[in-house]
C-alpha cells in the first residue's frame, strides 16, 4: 500500500512572550492511501496543529511533510494553492460564509480551481445531492442544522475531487444525532470515492465507528498507533486507556465500585468474543465470578466484548489459576476506580 501523507519528525513550536511551547514534538507518522486514519487524544495534545501542517495552514517549525512522496513543506503561492486543491478540509465550526447561499459556498471551491462558469452549477448540484442537501441549495447557512452545515462543508471540501480529506474535530460541535448524521455522510462518501481521510477527534465514539487505523497523541507526541481494533481491544498507552476507559460502557456508579473488591476489566480477543468464558471458568474452578457490567461493541465489523467482574473473596492461589485461564483468551486489566472520580 502506498503512502498518502507522511510526517517526518514534524515539530511545531509557538513562542509567546519569550516562552516557547512545543505543540507538536517530532512526530513521524504515515497515512496510507485510501485509509480512514484517526488521530485521537485529549484536547491540547497537538492533534489539530499536526493536521494543519498537511495543507500548511500551519507551517512546521522543523521536519517535513510529504504528500504522495513529495516534500511539500516549503510550498508557497500558486504551488501551495494547487496543493490545497488536492486536499479538502472540514472544521469543527464548519466555517461557512454566512452571507452566501449553500450553493455559493460550495461553488467557491470550484471558483478556486478555475472551473468553467457553465460547469459550476451542475457540479454544485451534484455535490449537494451526494451530501443529501439537494433541496437546500438556495438557503443560507443560518437556516441549517449543525449536521447540515457540516455536510455543506463536506460538499465544499470534496468539490475538486481531492485525494485527501482532513477533518479537524469535525463532529465535536455537534449533538449525538447530528454527529451520527455527519458520520453516516462520511462513511457513504468513503464507500464511493477512493479518498484518504485524516480525522482528528477527542470523541472516542467517533473513533470507534469510523477509523481503520488510529494514532494516539499526547502532549505533542504520538504515543501509540495501530488498527482501531487493536487500540480499542488492548490500549497500551495511558492516554489511550484513559480515553477508552472513560466511555467504555464499564462505568459503574462510584458507590458500587467502592463496595466491591478486586474488580477486573476483561476484554475478549476477537475470536473469543462470543465464548462462554465466565461460565466455563466457573465450572472448571468451581467458583463464581460476579459480572458487574459488560457489553459487546463492533469495531470495523469485528466484535469486541468487555466485562467487568469481581473476584472478591477468591483465595490467592485459585485467583492466579483463574486469571491464567482467562488470559489465554482475553486481556485483563485492573478496573481503575480513580479514573471516574471526576
Amino acid at each position: 500500500m502506498s503512502e498518502s501523507i507522511r510526517f517526518n519528525r514534524v515539530s511545531v513550536a509557538f513562542s509567546n512572550q519569550g516562552k516557547t511551547f512545543t505543540a507538536v514534538d517530532k512526530v513521524t507518522l504515515a497515512v496510507n492511501k485510501g485509509e480512514f486514519f484517526g488521530i485521537i487524544g485529549p484536547s491540547g495534545a497537538g492533534k489539530s496543529t499536526l493536521v494543519r501542517t498537511v495543507n500548511l495552514l500551519q507551517r512546521p517549525t522543523s521536519g517535513n511533510v510529504y504528500i504522495d512522496g513529495q516534500d511539500v513543506t516549503s510550498y508557497k503561492g500558486r504551488e501551495l494553492s494547487a496543493l490545497r486543491l488536492r486536499i479538502g478540509m472540514i472544521f469543527q465550526h464548519f466555517n461557512l460564509v454566512r452571507n452566501s447561499t449553500v450553493a455559493d459556498n460550495v461553488a467557491f471551491a470550484l471558483l478556486a480551481s478555475g472551473t468553467q462558469k457553465a460547469k459550476i452549477r451542475p457540479r454544485v448540484l451534484e455535490l449537494l445531492k451526494l451530501t443529501g442537501l439537494s433541496d437546500k441549495a438556495d438557503l443560507y447557512p443560518a437556516a441549517l442544522s449543525g449536521g447540515q452545515k457540516q455536510r455543506v462543508a463536506i460538499a465544499r471540501a470534496l468539490a475538486n475531487n481531492p485525494e485527501i480529506l482532513l477533518c479537524d474535530e469535525a463532529t465535536s460541535a455537534l449533538d449525538p444525532e447530528n454527529t451520527a448524521d455527519v458520520i453516516a455522510a462520511l462513511r457513504d462518501i468513503k464507500a464511493q470515492y477512493p479518498l484518504t481521510v485524516l480525522f482528528i477527534t477527542h470523541q472516542e465514539q467517533v473513533a470507534r465507528s469510523l477509523f481503520d487505523r488510529i494514532a494516539v497523541m499526547e502532549r505533542g507526541r504520538i504515543v501509540e498507533q495501530g488498527t482501531a481494533y487493536e487500540i480499542f481491544a488492548h490500549p497500551q498507552s495511558k492516554a489511550a486507556q484513559d480515553l477508552i476507559a472513560r466511555s467504555h460502557g464499564t462505568e459503574i456508579p462510584k458507590e458500587v465500585a467502592a463496595s466491591l473488591q478486586d474488580l477486573l476489566v476483561i476484554t475478549f480477543r476477537e475470536e473469543h468474543a462470543y465464548d462462554a468464558l465466565i461460565a466455563e471458568t466457573s465450572r472448571k474452578f468451581g467458583t463464581d465470578l460476579s459480572i458487574i457490567a459488560g457489553r459487546i461493541d463492533y469495531i470495523q465489523g469485528k466484535p469486541l466484548g468487555t466485562l467487568v467482574v469481581s473476584l472478591g473473596g477468591l483465595d490467592p492461589k485459585k485467583r492466579v489459576q483463574v486469571l491464567a485461564f482467562i488470559a489465554e483468551r482475553a486481556w485483563i486489566q485492573p478496573y481503575k476506580k480513580e479514573e471516574f472520580d471526576v
Binding site: 479538502g88 472544521f91 466555517n95 471558483l111 478556486a112
Partner: peptide, 22 residues
C-alpha cells in the same frame, strides 16, 4: 471570522478570490 478565511485558504483559493467572495 478567521475560521472562514482559513477554510477559504484551505480550498486553494488565491487571495483575490477570497477578497471578493469571502
Amino acid at each position: 471570522d478567521p475560521g472562514v478565511i482559513e477554510a477559504a485558504l484551505a480550498s486553494g483559493a488565491r487571495p483575490w478570490l477570497i477578497i471578493r467572495k469571502v
